[in-house]
């Protein structure tokens, strides 16, 4: 049974269609990337999963139940817009959220202290949030999402506002959660994180699903390209859809960018060059990056490298 199952989910705000007929499922131990530009419907979908807002139509099942039958003890959530009670101490904040999720205070405190130690904040456990830097407060908030060892961890734009060190720390926590069997969903429009972390990902554009699958499957949606240095005869090799000369290197040699015909493997073209006597000084496959896929499916305006 998937940890989270979304079926034909639609959400309208008046005339605005925020989420359009969206279906996906996330399984135990899986890291699921929720990719899309601003206003793609990522936050709205996560809020519907948490029952903060209700869908216009469609079905959501969290651990097999409707989201209104809350299982907060098994869910961790880090919102995009972050904030905590300024007058509370770090550990009291963590314990407060632990208790709201049904944990005993003592257990919440001991795991909270463990998390703070892992986040290099052990000596600031009793410091007030208002006396902490923004980065420290963000780590405390991450601890509030993790304190209950959630089986479904949802992170909305978790990397925004974090420095590179803390981004690494967050990546570690995502991997750690996945290793202990939690389903992790995180939304982002930063492709590097998705490429490094995601088992599967979903691309959203204006509330509509444009792609769902693994990173390799995503890359495969765009034809592979080959960078080659060869004579002009390479353009006639079977399987080459288009050969674009980049630079004339003299003595009959050119640098080419080659686009393959659909369903043509790179290896097949290399073999035909060899058997057909087409000399090669360079033959390098360039697979589409996730960035290319995102730009292709979602649009250039929505991407952040």
């Amino acid at each position: 049974m998937p940890v989270l199952e979304v079926e034909r989910l639609t959400k309208r705000f008046g005339e605005v269609l925020a989420v359009d007929d969206l279906s996906f499922a996330v399984r135990r131990g899986e890291i699921f990337g929720f990719l899309g530009g601003n206003g793609a419907g990522k936050t709205t979908t996560l809020r519907m999963v948490l029952d903060i807002i209700r869908p216009s139509s469609g079905r959501i099942a969290v651990f097999g139940n409707a989201p209104d039958k809350r299982n907060t003890a098994a869910i961790g959530f880090l919102p995009e817009e972050r904030g905590l009670y300024g007058h509370m101490s770090a550990i009291d904040t963590i314990v407060y959220f632990a208790r709201l999720k049904g944990m005993a205070a003592a257990e919440g405190r001991s795991h909270g202290l463990e998390l703070l130690a892992r986040f290099d904040l052990a000596d600031r456990a009793t410091a007030k949030i208002s006396d902490m830097s923004k980065g420290m407060a963000q780590k405390v908030q991450l601890a509030t999402a993790l304190v209950n060892r959630p089986q479904l961890l949802m992170l909305d734009e978790p990397f925004s506002g974090l420095d590179p060190v803390n981004q690494g720390l967050l990546e570690d926590e995502i991997l750690r959660a996945s290793e202990r069997g939690a389903a992790v969903i995180f939304s982002t429009h930063v492709m590097q994180h998705a490429e490094r972390l995601c088992d599967r990902l979903l691309l959203l554009r204006k509330g509509h699903k444009r792609f769902e699958g693994t990173i390799d499957e995503a890359r495969a949606t765009l034809p592979a390209r080959i960078a080659a240095i060869a004579p002009r005869s390479i353009a006639a090799v079977a399987g080459v859809a288009h050969a674009e000369p980049v630079e004339d290197l003299g003595a009959g040699w050119h640098e080419w960018t080659i686009t393959l015909a659909p369903d043509t493997e790179v290896g097949e073209v290399l073999e035909r060059c060899t058997t057909g006597g087409v000399p090669l000084r360079r033959f390098e496959e360039r697979r589409a990056s996730l960035h290319d896929v995102f730009v292709s499916l979602v649009g250039t305006a929505e991407v952040q490298p």
């Binding site: 948490l50 880090l78 972050r82 904030g83 905590l84 009670y85 959220f97 709201l100």
Partner: peptide, 17 residues
């Protein structure tokens, strides 16, 4: 007002109704 201006509500509403 502090809860709203500190953007705390979404975290809270993920835990309680």
């Amino acid at each position: 007002v502090e809860e709203r201006s500190n953007k705390l509500l979404e975290s809270l509403l993920a835990c309680i109704r």
